[in-house]
Design a protein around this nucleic acid. Structure first.
Lengths: 136, 136
DNA sequence: CAGCATCCTGTAGGATACTG
DNA sequence: CAGTATCCTACAGGATGCTG
């Protein structure tokens, strides 16, 4: 095992990342992309670039603070691109990068899953609460 | 449009759920499944039932409080099943339900994505911070 | 229009200790 | 073993007002 190829070493390296481990950097990355605002903003960019105010309309209920904060995080992590067009007033567009576009399907899937299974979840909650009442 | 078939009505009904809307119940469901502990616990159940203490070992760093809280939420929402075996000491197993198993691939995908793209994200962060320093 | 700065609050969630 | 109960606090995140 002292004679691993570069490819093998890289594969071994990759497998060292594990979000189950509290101190692994991927734990933090997992937490970031498992954020409600992050997910919704990414999905909001699915159909192409959007401007700041458009995003705040699509992702209804997000505060300017959280929108800005989410966009900064995503930009820093290389998932979206921020483009400023110098005009009066200034115009800013946000667009997915290649990296962001790779993550997009997962996020769309989650949003879709929630919408597709809402009724089932509501049913499960009723059952659970009913059974819980009987106990108490 | 007063003559929709049952199928059409159901489709229309489904499309009324939209997690982009602040007050849609799916917004809350989306938030729930976009939770770091929820995701990790679900993935921890991928290979079959697990006991409480096993889960706390797999999902390293989770506090008893958050583990219990997460398990309760998932049970109530119908994604996991809690089974108590009366013995001394008592034995409790958690397992995915059919509903949970439908969600699992998405969660596994997210965790895998984080691990697969950690290096790219680290690189993006360096670039961003460097550019940011130059500005300041 | 696209934010940033500030203030303020609730609460997520960790640490710890105890129990059937 | 599988939790519950309690305490405590850092920070998520909303509201508001200002600016280039």
């Amino acid at each position: 095992m002292t004679t691993m190829t570069a490819r093998e070493r890289r594969a071994a390296q990759k497998s060292e990342y594990d979000a189950f481990l509290a101190l692994c950097p991927t734990r933090q990355l997992f937490a970031t992309i498992s954020d409600k605002w992050v997910g919704l903003v990414l999905v909001a960019l699915a159909d192409g670039p959007q401007r700041y105010n458009a995003l705040s309309r699509i992702v209804a209920g997000i505060s300017p603070k959280m929108l800005t904060q989410t966009l900064r995080t995503l930009e820093r992590d290389g998932m979206i691109q921020r483009t400023v067009t110098a005009s009066v007033p200034v115009r800013v567009d946000y667009d997915l990068t290649a990296l962001g576009r790779e993550l997009l399907p997962l996020m769309v899937g989650i949003k879709q899953w929630a919408q597709d299974h809402m009724d089932a979840v509501i049913g499960a909650r009723h059952l659970f609460d009913r059974r819980d009442d009987a106990q108490a």
